[in-house]
Write a protein that binds this DNA or RNA. Structure first.
Length: 407
RNA sequence: GGAGAGGUGGCCGAGCGGUUAAUGGCAACAGACUGUAAAUCUGUCGACGCAAGUCUACGGAGGUUCGAAUCCUCCCCUCUCCA
């Protein structure tokens, strides 16, 4: 089936929405016009199977391709994962065992298929071809690139300039990842903007190896909940696919207000027009930033858990943080008798034992700072003896609760 | 192979024989305020102990000293310049 010119143009516009880079538009245009079913590559390291909203940005774009009938090739970098993508504070990774890779890959798929259609997704492992390469092939691969070009990569450049270590093997990473594109004959490769260098290497290697070149599309990096650094597991500023509804909601509420428009742009289907309207409304005070945020929080919870869960999360949040009520599910902690003397224990110790805080000292400091309550009353005496004959409700701040009983 | 610089708490970064559990910044946590786990301001920020205090910590192992993150020896790691 052939698509007419306008149709193709429209599709490309749609695919371009929100993208930072879009390299190789002509090739894409030609293929779409010819009615070709595209192979869209998306690669992932099997080491961190905890996807977050940053990934969602890219996954949504993949979904757009899928909805147009194209095939997603989800590449699991089990081989390249042994090196690890150079990332600032790089360290040599311990090689993953086969089982770990399998397990991580499994988890990864469980997560991406919350967004993508498994039927239109092919999963491949790059160890299939990379582990079989002999030194001659590796040398051929290496001869395609120069050190100077490698150092163009922002990450390397920075480390080189500030005299940080760069291992030679890290130079191999972009080459191997790029070689995957040669092997797969991918038509399009998608990734976060931080992947631009690697993706372009893939495009160039395809040319060197006499293949058609892939179109490279990158999506912006989403700032994390701190509003500064990119969302990432290692910065601890992420909202994960597997987070509880409560956490997705709460973490979303902790995003700085002024990031709302960006989040809406990258994580929802609002059109550019609607976004503009919203931006204005927030500025003029018509739309309270909190409202924009709680709406977004609900959208996100719904995406992973459905709208009922979203409503529930909102109610719970309002109850706890707006009306100062208690959350619904407070874990019950049983304290063994051996820890008690005469059925009693000091609050500080109790807080530590019940797992609310990491040490007794910390609990004492919290009490001094006025952050601890028992049965709704603020505790001021850090040595207060608590009789565990009956259940006690402890809270530290508004986010940590435990019901404690002797058991 | 030679010469030099350096490795400090979650991160960045001072200190260079003793009032140093180690200045400062960031992050984190709590409090106040708020229609938010936004913003802002304040406080806390090694562990154990009711406490006096004890222990653990400045790449690793030894050593010198009444006393070491600070000096010495060896080892490991990183960077720079030269060959």
């Amino acid at each position: 089936m052939r698509s007419d010119h306008m149709d193709v143009k429209h599709k490309i516009e749609l695919l371009k929405r929100g993208a930072v880079d879009f390299v190789g538009e002509e090739e894409l245009h030609e293929k779409l016009a010819a009615g070709k079913k595209l192979k869209v590559k998306f690669g992932a390291d099997p080491s961190a199977p905890d996807l977050h909203l940053g990934h969602l940005v890219v996954l949504r774009k993949l979904k757009a391709f899928q909805d147009m009938g194209h095939e997603i090739v989800f590449l699991i970098g089990d081989f390249t994962g042994m090196i690890g993508d150079p990332s600032g504070k790089s360290e040599t990774r311990k090689p993953l065992t086969r089982e770990t890779v399998e397990l991580n890959a499994r988890t990864y798929q469980d997560q991406i298929f919350k967004v993508l259609d498994p039927k239109k997704t092919k999963v491949v492992y790059n160890s299939k071809w990379l582990s079989k390469m002999d030194l001659v092939s590796v040398m051929k691969l290496m001869s395609q690139y120069s050190v100077a070009r490698m150092l163009e990569r922002a990450d390397f450049k920075e480390r080189f300039k500030s005299n940080k270590e760069i291992s030679i093997i890290e130079f191999l990473y972009p080459l191997m990842q790029g070689y995957d594109s040669v092997e797969l004959e991918s038509d399009v490769e998608l990734g976060g903007h931080d992947q631009i260098f690697n993706l372009l290497v893939g495009r160039e290697l395809q040319k060197s190896y006499g293949k058609a070149q892939q179109t490279v599309i990158t999506m912006p990096l989403l700032e994390g909940t701190d509003g500064k650094l990119k969302m990432s597991k290692s910065y601890g500023n992420y909202i994960g696919f597997t987070d509880t509804p409560k956490d997705i909601y709460g973490k979303t509420m902790s995003i700085p207000d002024d990031l709302m428009v960006k989040y809406y742009t990258l994580l929802t289907d609002l059109s550019d027009k609607e976004l503009k309207v919203m931006e204005k409304a927030i500025k003029s005070g018509e739309l309270h930033p909190k409202k924009a945020k709680s709406d977004l929080a609900k959208i996100l919870v719904s995406l992973f858990y459905g709208s009922d869960a979203a409503d529930k999360a909102e109610n719970e949040f309002d109850a706890v943080f707006k009306d100062n009520k208690l959350p619904q599910d407070i874990p019950l902690v049983k304290v063994s008798k051996n820890h008690l003397s005469d059925g009693k224990m000091s609050v500080s110790k109790l807080i530590h034992i019940s797992g609310l805080l990491d040490s007794v000292g910390e609990a004492k400091r919290m009490i001094k700072g006025g952050g601890v309550k028992m049965d709704g009353k603020k505790i001021t005496d850090e040595n207060l003896l608590v009789d565990l004959g009956s259940e006690k409700l402890l809270s530290v701040g508004k986010r940590k609760y435990a019901r404690v009983i002797c058991g």
